[in-house]
Amino acid sequence: MNFRTLNTALLSCLLAMVLVIPAQAGHHAKDQATDAIVLAAFGTSYPEALNSILNIRSKVEKAFPGVPVKLAFTSSIIRDIWHERQNDAAWQKNNAGVPSDILTVKGPLATIADLQDEGYTSIAVQSLHVFAGEEFSDLTQTMLGLRSIRAIKAKSVPFKSLRLGRPALGMPGVVYPYTEDIAYATKALKADVDAAKKLDAALVYMGHGNDFYSTGIYAQFQSEMQKAYNHPIFVGCVEGYPAFDDMLVQLKASGVKKVLLKPFMIVAGDHATNDMAGDEDDAWKVMLTKAGIDVTIDLHGLGSMDAWADIYVRHLKDAKTQKHMLP
């Protein structure tokens, strides 16, 4: 075995150890004072869209009384927008309902570091992403890096335990099959289907998607929704597959002439307001209308629905009790 091969093998072994080595100290009742939770969302710059994230935080706080719950935004662009508003007194006066901690929101790494510096050594991070795509992958790598920290003395290791909760539609693995998470998510959206049926309309979701990760899970989710409710339900993505054109082909083939259009995103922020419900020629509302379809808009993010918020509470409970950092 040459040096390069040996080095690669050793690196693979180290990565495997990071994933499976249990925490260096047990998680006992006496450690409760060192517990903390971080909710990691992509974020939004729209004050009115914050309610979806804040609703999830409220649900988590009720499920884990006495445990501090911090928000972290994975988007540096979104964080910068909020930080600029710290010095804008007029903006703050016009948006008095925005919690003060949003103006100083940090990324997951800095948020975890702050908590550790304050004495919290058992930290569970819950992803508020929809699926295990680019943002969740980056969050995972951050957690793996922190989880790999070792010290000569056990007391010098910064964390007793680090746990990461999976996204709403799950992640690859055998501990929590993602198909079960899809089924759970399908049940959580019954109210959307009922609203579409009341309008005698198809239900169309705009998902975010991703250009760098497979987004086929959206198509699988669409299939499960259709089977569960025996109703025309379609999902398209801003990025990746299925794109708007892919969704439109299926929509036309179904023969429906009316749709309830909703964001399949945690918040109804920029994409939902402009790309979905805007008045530009490339907005979904406009393109559907030009295709002869009557459109009703529902500008509410998934996080505003209690049943969807409960998904993250459920995944967080799994994360806090699982043996390893990842399922």
Rank of each mutant, 00 (worst) to 15 (best):
S161C: 06
T34W: 07
L169S: 05
Q116P: 03
S254P: 01
R85G: 03
F136I: 05
E280K: 11
T321S: 15
I102H: 02
V259G: 07
I217G: 05
V130E: 07
S148N: 09
Q141A: 05
P263S: 03
V60Q: 04
M287E: 12
T74P: 02
N7G: 08
V259N: 10
A191E: 15
P158N: 03
E118K: 14
A96L: 08
A124I: 10
I266D: 02
I77M: 13
C13L: 14
E84I: 03
D318H: 09
N95I: 00
Q322K: 06
V249T: 15
G97C: 07
L10Y: 11
R314K: 08
N95T: 02
A228Y: 07
K257D: 04
G301H: 12
A49Y: 05
V175Q: 13
V18G: 12
G292L: 05
V235W: 07
A272H: 07
L103I: 06
L261T: 12
V256C: 08
R57Y: 05
L71D: 04
W91R: 00
V130R: 03
A49L: 01
F221K: 02
I123S: 02
T111H: 07
A89T: 14
I78V: 15
V238N: 08
L288D: 03
I112E: 11
W284H: 06
M225P: 07
E84C: 09
G303D: 07
A309H: 05
I311W: 03
L203H: 13
P65I: 10
S76N: 13
M325D: 01
M143A: 00
G173H: 04
G240L: 09
G119F: 13
N210Q: 04
K262S: 10
A154L: 11
Y241T: 15
A124F: 12
A154E: 14
E180Y: 05
A154C: 01
S161E: 13
K197Q: 13
P99T: 02
A195S: 12
I53C: 03
S137P: 00
V193A: 12
A272I: 05
I77E: 13
E48Q: 14
